[in-house]
Simulated assay, not measured.
Amino acid sequence: MKSRTVCRLILPVLIGAYFALTSVLFAEDKKAGPGDVAIVNGKRITVIELDQGVESKMQLLARRGQIPDQTQIADLRKTVLEELINIELLSQESRKKGIKVEESVVGDRLKALKSSFTDEKAYADALSKDKMTESDLKTRIEKGLLIQELVSQEVVQKVTVSPEESKAFYKDNPDAFKQPEQVHASHILIKVEPKAGDAEKKKARKEIEDILKRLKKGEDFAALAKQHSACPSKEKGGDLGFMRRGQTVKPFEDAAFALKPGETSGIVETEFGYHIVRVLEKKQERVVPYEEAQESLDKHLKDVKVQNEVSRYIEGLRTNAKVERPIADTAK
């Protein structure tokens, strides 16, 4: 299939949302207070939890360069509230079914989370900022793992894909299995900043010309890349792996796709500076055979089924649950 993600499971979305919304302490079980946005079978979800959840989502959008307007923020609040309700319903169901997770598994997950911080102080500061203790965090991690195990037992393990389904999808969606021409390239980059003056450009040009001369004399491309290239790929001898058209800047793409395997370009100028490109191998455009695509295809089809079944499972929990929305009910 095409090398892109074709679907997302609702489970990782829910679990991801849960951990993104862990910046406040658990609400106590009691009657609705003035700051409650929902009560799920007696369990409160507070305005603070909702606000923190929305803020987490806003930060994710900002990192992608997306700034929602007021209408979009209102819709986002509704979405986050429904996610919180779903998470609470799944958590309650996991407890009803007596699902357990080993303390060691929780500990391993906590250790992995802590390792993402630069040091103990950064970790402690993050907990303090979110008004949490490590014990609170462990409880939340455990809750997320319980939900994950519940969905695994009740949905994922029960979903199957037959060979007939898989082959039918392959036959009915031929475009999904077209693989475009690809080239496996390495390069050496002498970087030139966008605001560089003539003297800096001249110096960079001289450096890339000297490297090209050395290559023509038979020096090793990978060794020169490691020594001179300004691209992170230098650590792999300049190896960029396989690329398709449209994945890099046009001058580089044109040079790479014009070369035959084993050939080296002249000097290629792009917005990043000066390059020398070498093509290692090429793959022509083709249709991926069913036998080669089957494993990833079966996974895709199962993912789609699981997504739909998890949605149905949650709807079933909602049907049998008492979900109150005090603020919305008051506004009616």
Rank of each mutant, 00 (worst) to 15 (best):
S3K: 10
R4P: 01
T5N: 08
R8L: 14
L11R: 06
G16N: 05
G16V: 01
Y18T: 12
Y18S: 05
S23D: 11
D36G: 12
G42R: 09
T46N: 03
D51S: 15
D51T: 12
R63H: 07
R64P: 00
R64F: 05
P68R: 11
Q70V: 15
Q72W: 06
I73L: 11
L76F: 04
L76R: 12
K78L: 04
K78D: 05
L81D: 04
L84P: 01
N86K: 10
N86C: 04
I87F: 04
I87C: 03
I87P: 03
L89S: 09
S91W: 07
E93R: 07
K96H: 07
G98D: 07
I99G: 01
I99Y: 00
V101A: 11
A112T: 12
S115D: 10
T118Q: 13
K121H: 12
Y123F: 14
A124L: 09
K129Q: 11
K129F: 05
D130T: 14
K131D: 07
M132R: 10
T139M: 11
E142M: 10
L146G: 02
S152A: 11
V156T: 13
V159G: 08
T160W: 03
E164S: 15
K171R: 13
D172Y: 06
D175R: 15
Q179G: 09
V183S: 07
L189T: 10
I190D: 02
K191M: 12
P194N: 10
G197M: 05
A199D: 13
R205V: 03
K206L: 12
I208P: 06
D210K: 15
I211L: 05
K213A: 15
R214P: 05
K216N: 15
K216I: 03
K217M: 10
A223E: 08
H228S: 12
P232C: 09
K234Y: 10
G237F: 01
D239L: 11
G241H: 01
F242Q: 07
R244F: 04
R245N: 09
E253Y: 00
A255G: 04
A256R: 01
A256E: 04
G262E: 14
T264V: 12
T264Q: 13
S265V: 09
V268P: 01
V268R: 08
E269H: 13
F272L: 11
Y274G: 02
I276S: 00
V279I: 06
V279L: 04
K282E: 08
K283L: 15
Q284C: 06
V287W: 04
E295Y: 09
D303W: 04
D303F: 01
V306W: 00
V306D: 03
E309C: 08
V310Q: 00
Y313D: 09
Y313R: 10
I314R: 00
R318A: 08
A328N: 06
